[in-house]
Amino acid sequence: MGRAFRTAGLGAVVLLVLAGAAGCTPAQDKLVAVRLDGGRIVLDPGRCPNERTSRAYLAVYAKGGAADAQPEQQWSADADGSADQPAAVAVAAPPTGWRVSGTAPAEVRPDRRYYVSIDNVHDGNLLHTGVLDVDGAVLAGLAPDQVVASKGGVMTAEAYRAKVGKSCG
């Protein structure tokens, strides 16, 4: 029985090493931001030059609702390898080639919360780039040159782009 246990233990170690070599690493939380353009929500994936955005997701919740509450509204857009890759994803007008499901919010409401999640592909592996939970009052109060970022909160769009550049190494 001792030999069988050692063999099973060695097999588990080999599987862990192979999983690591195959690129199965934990997701990295990077920067993501949201801003308004003419009152419409725009998502900025904080993409590095060698990344492609594969999915953008937005959910709208009642402020102060239960932690396990279902969103009032959901919107998502998925891109395949040939879809356009703009610097930002306008929720009301997604990029060419993206498959959209759900309905985009018509307006930003101060009495709601907005949850954003964006996934990028990096070196052929899915890399979860970040999540952001934004108070509707904060989002509605942004100046035209401001964003709400997942790391750093409200800042200028220029400061956000500089943070993204630094994060790309």
Score class of each variant (00 low, 15 high):
1 M>W: 08
1 M>N: 12
4 A>S: 13
5 F>N: 10
5 F>G: 11
9 G>E: 01
9 G>M: 10
10 L>C: 07
13 V>D: 04
15 L>P: 07
17 V>E: 05
17 V>T: 06
17 V>I: 15
20 G>D: 09
21 A>H: 11
22 A>N: 08
26 P>E: 06
28 Q>F: 10
29 D>L: 13
30 K>R: 08
35 R>N: 04
37 D>Y: 01
37 D>K: 07
39 G>P: 12
40 R>A: 07
42 V>F: 04
43 L>K: 00
46 G>P: 06
47 R>D: 03
47 R>Y: 03
47 R>P: 03
50 N>W: 07
52 R>N: 08
54 S>G: 05
55 R>T: 15
56 A>E: 00
59 A>H: 06
59 A>R: 04
62 A>N: 12
65 G>E: 13
65 G>I: 11
66 A>M: 13
68 D>R: 10
72 E>M: 15
72 E>P: 01
73 Q>S: 04
75 W>L: 02
75 W>E: 07
76 S>T: 12
76 S>C: 05
79 A>D: 00
80 D>P: 01
81 G>K: 09
82 S>N: 12
82 S>M: 09
84 D>H: 01
84 D>R: 07
87 A>C: 07
88 A>P: 04
89 V>K: 05
93 A>T: 11
93 A>P: 14
95 P>C: 11
96 T>P: 02
96 T>V: 15
97 G>R: 03
103 T>R: 15
104 A>L: 10
105 P>M: 08
108 V>S: 09
108 V>I: 12
109 R>H: 12
110 P>F: 09
111 D>H: 11
113 R>H: 14
114 Y>M: 10
114 Y>D: 03
116 V>G: 02
117 S>A: 07
118 I>L: 15
118 I>S: 05
118 I>N: 10
119 D>P: 04
121 V>K: 13
122 H>L: 12
122 H>D: 13
125 N>L: 14
126 L>P: 02
126 L>E: 03
127 L>C: 02
128 H>G: 12
129 T>W: 08
132 L>R: 04
133 D>W: 03
133 D>A: 08
133 D>M: 07
134 V>Y: 15
135 D>G: 01
136 G>K: 13
137 A>M: 14
137 A>K: 11
137 A>I: 15
138 V>W: 04
138 V>M: 14
142 L>D: 10
147 V>W: 10
150 S>Y: 03
150 S>M: 06
152 G>R: 04
154 V>W: 02
155 M>G: 01
156 T>C: 08
156 T>P: 11
157 A>T: 13
158 E>D: 14
158 E>M: 09
159 A>L: 02
160 Y>Q: 09
160 Y>T: 13
160 Y>S: 11
160 Y>P: 09
161 R>L: 02
162 A>K: 15
162 A>G: 05
164 V>Q: 00
164 V>N: 04
165 G>F: 10
168 C>P: 12
169 G>F: 00
